[in-house]
Nucleic acid binder design. Sequence first.
DNA 1: CAATAATATTACAGCCATATGACAGAAAGG
DNA 2: CCTTTCTGTCATATGGCTGTAATATTATTG
Lengths: 231, 231
Amino acid sequence: MSEEKYILVVDDEPAILDMVEFALKRTGFRLMLAEDSMQAMSRIAESKPDLILLDWMLPDISGVDLARRLKRDELSKSIPIIMLTARAEEGDKLRGFEVGVDDYVTKPFSTRELIARINAVLRRAEPQQDDAGLCMRGLELDPSTHRVGFEGEKVSLGPTEFRLLHFFMTHPERVYSREQLLDRVWGQNVYIEERTVDVHIRRLRKELATHGCDKMIQTVRGAGYRFSEQT
Amino acid sequence: MSEEKYILVVDDEPAILDMVEFALKRTGFRLMLAEDSMQAMSRIAESKPDLILLDWMLPDISGVDLARRLKRDELSKSIPIIMLTARAEEGDKLRGFEVGVDDYVTKPFSTRELIARINAVLRRAEPQQDDAGLCMRGLELDPSTHRVGFEGEKVSLGPTEFRLLHFFMTHPERVYSREQLLDRVWGQNVYIEERTVDVHIRRLRKELATHGCDKMIQTVRGAGYRFSEQT
DNA sequence: CAATAATATTACAGCCATATGACAGAAAGG
DNA sequence: CCTTTCTGTCATATGGCTGTAATATTATTG
């Protein structure tokens, strides 16, 4: 808890912004500011904050949509999000939670409440570090050590293959199109041939094949690829 | 998302119709038109739309009555309805919501507002159909994993057969002509022989037959095909 | 029951999606 | 600065999928 946490505040109302800024700085957080979704995304790209305070209403892309986007991207999905909303309607809240938002604060709110929620969410998020070791059918991947193994044997992968496998193991059983994979494994602003995905799938399979577990990467013709424990 | 949504517009004013048609087509929706309630019902019987835009005032049966009727029928009750009304009176709105209408747009309206409402309603309705695995009489289809099974056994289908079955399972108990199937399963700008549908029906049935559930795809002579749980 | 229409079934050739191997440039590491 | 590894693209191979037509079967009609 010694290290200072960075909080990105996304809001276009100066009044709110001032209040939040004052309260958070006083409590010992470091701030990053953005006035709309575009700015928010570039801030995040520059430097990953520890938590995002996100207004429901924004000038460009709506807060929920931004949240959905962030929660979909491999790089930003682990960042907790607290939404600020004027509406207390249950429907909206539900939509937010579906998207993966971590908590809600309804305007008007006290700084005390805000701080409390932020601390609660940060505490909850702490142990949820993404370096929990993954294991499926003997195939182990440890993000913290950046190692992959199969039943004790060492599996050696290049950086991209590692990220690809990591994505698959955290999203098993589901089919992803080449486009989605490019978006989520490579990052959203890259222009790369879709066929390139095939090649990396091939490289990943080739290495897995030496250990006899390449069948876990499955081709779904006309749709994309899937990582699965089942045959 | 990926698939084109069908919207049935029920209105007898050419001016409104033109405007709506232009706006919706531009946004990428597929249109179905009806000028009164009777037409609307037969359109729905032909092919189930994903959403209905319903004028309050119609030449024959009033819009509210039609809405009530649709919301009572098992086959059409899940279709979201947005009412178009000139009156802003709360009483009318209430009556509409009681009937089960999903949203209201008061004339005059901007196309932007209309589109926004449509998207909102569709998004709200989405989680029912999009990701939820479908299951009927032991036959399971999961769009997210792209897997089909029958009582645990794996059912393997080609891409077209998968889409065909997916369409059928989301539109059960209703007859679709070959033309309609080509339109909705293959896409709108395809020039393909109608007989080709027979062949894909055959392929689908053949695979289903190995699991003993091919009876669910039924031929309706002179009309088309139907997917049904009943025998 | 014959004649006709609609659907079922089969076979097949072209096409399209994916797999694979090779390569040059970029990045990383020594 | 050189070596090595990694990356993205292309060319080619392969195999499955697709649409069509030809033929068989079944239903409808008079």
